[in-house]
C-alpha cells in the first residue's frame, strides 16, 4: 500500500506556470490523470517521478520526498513517454539491465517472471529496434515493474499503440491495479481513461480541476445542463408533461426516444417516476447520453 501525495505543488518555467498549486493523494488502484495537451500532465508526472523539482510545495511517497532521493526508486516504476534509445539491446537484455540496476538478488528469475507477466517472453530475444510500438511499451512496463514497485507511473502509455495492443495493455494495467498497486497513467484521450479508471484526476491549464469518481464529478456539476435519453410508451405526452417542470430546460423528439436537457439533476430524478405515473406513461429506459469523459472534460476546459 503506497500513497503518492502532492502538497500544494507548483512548477513554473520562467513566466510560464505549468503546474499551479496542485494537491492530491493517489492510493492503490488505477488512477487516470486526465487533461488536454499542454495541461501540465507531463510536468506533473515528471515531478512525481523525481525528474523535476517542484518550484513550491512538496511531492512525497509514503512521506518521503521524491526530488533528489534516488532511494525512492525502489518504490517507483516509471514508464516515460520517451522512446528507448537502447535499440541495440534485446528486450531481455534491457529488462535484465533494469533488474541489475536495482541489484535484485535473482535478477535473471525476476526478468523472466516479469516478461511472462507482460506476455513478452517469445519476442524477448529480439532487438528493441525491431519491436512494434505496443511491444516497446510492454517492455518498458516490464522494465518498470521488474523490482515489484508499489507505484507505477505511466506517461501517455497508449500513444500510438494499435487498438488490439491497447486492449491488452489496459487488461495488464487493470490487473496491476487489482493487485493493490498504485497505478497512475496520464492521457488526453477520454475513452481510454473511461475504460480503465474509475478514479480520475483532471488537470486543466496547470490547475487541479477535479478529482474522484468521474461519475461523481459529473454529478457535482449541477449548474451545467445534463442530457438524458428517455424511452417511454408515449413520448409525446411525456414531453409535454416534462416541459412543465422547472428543472427541464428542453425536450426534443428524436425518432423513438426523447432527448431531455435537465438543469437540476436531483429534482428531475426524484420527480420523474411520479410524473410518468400521473400521465399514465410507462418508462422503458432512462440513460444519460453524455455521461462520457468527453463532456466532463469539455465542461472543465470551457469553464
Amino acid at each position: 500500500m503506497t500513497t503518492l501525495v502532492l502538497d500544494s505543488a507548483s512548477r513554473w518555467f520562467g513566466n510560464v506556470v505549468a503546474v499551479n498549486d496542485v494537491s492530491l493523494s493517489i492510493g492503490p488502484g488505477v488512477t487516470g490523470l486526465l487533461g488536454p495537451n499542454g495541461a501540465g500532465k507531463t510536468t506533473l508526472m515528471a515531478m512525481m517521478a523525481g525528474f523535476l523539482a517542484p518550484s513550491a510545495g512538496h511531492v512525497t511517497i509514503d512521506g518521503k520526498p521524491v526530488w533528489r532521493n534516488t532511494e525512492i526508486y525502489r518504490q517507483i516504476g516509471l514508464v516515460p513517454e520517451r522512446e528507448l534509445s537502447f535499440g541495440y539491446l534485446t528486450g531481455r537484455q534491457f529488462v535484465r539491465a533494469n533488474a541489475d540496476l536495482h541489484r535484485l538478488p535473482d535478477a535473471a528469475a525476476a526478468t523472466e517472471r516479469i516478461l511472462e507477466e507482460v506476455d513478452m517472453v517469445e519476442p524477448a530475444g529480439r532487438r528493441l529496434d525491431t519491436y512494434s510500438k505496443g511491444m516497446r511499451q510492454r517492455v518498458k512496463i516490464a522494465a518498470a515493474l521488474v523490482h515489484d514497485p508499489g507505484v507505477l507511473l505511466l506517461d501517455e502509455p497508449f500513444n500510438g499503440v494499435d487498438p488490439r495492443q491497447r486492449m491488452h495493455l489496459m487488461d495488464l494495467l487493470r490487473r496491476l491495479g487489482d493487485e493493490g498497486r498504485t497505478v497512475l497513467f496520464s492521457s488526453h484521450i477520454l475513452e481510454e481513461v473511461e475504460r480503465l479508471a474509475r478514479h480520475i484526476e483532471v488537470v486543466v491549464s496547470g490547475r487541479h480541476a477535479a478529482s474522484g469518481d468521474f461519475g461523481a464529478i459529473r454529478r457535482l456539476m449541477t449548474d451545467r445542463p445534463v442530457q438524458y435519453a428517455l424511452k417511454s410508451s408515449d413520448n409525446r405526452t411525456l414531453a409535454a408533461a416534462l416541459m412543465a417542470q422547472a428543472s427541464v430546460r428542453s425536450v426534443s423528439l428524436r425518432g423513438d426516444h426523447l432527448d431531455v436537457q435537465v438543469d437540476d439533476l436531483g429534482s428531475f430524478a426524484v420527480g420523474l417516476p411520479g410524473l410518468a405515473k400521473q400521465h399514465d406513461v410507462t418508462l422503458y429506459e432512462l440513460s444519460p447520453s453524455d455521461e462520457s469523459l468527453e463532456s466532463v472534460f469539455a465542461y472543465l476546459v470551457a469553464r
Binding site: 517521478a49 525502489r74 517507483i76 516515460p80 520517451r82 522512446e83 528507448l84 540496476l101 541489484r103 522494465a143
Partner: peptide, 12 residues
C-alpha cells in the same frame, strides 16, 4: 534524447 531517465530512475 532524455532516455537517460531509464538509468536514473533507479536506486543508484
Amino acid at each position: 534524447d532524455g532516455s537517460i531517465i531509464y538509468l536514473l530512475a533507479k536506486p543508484v
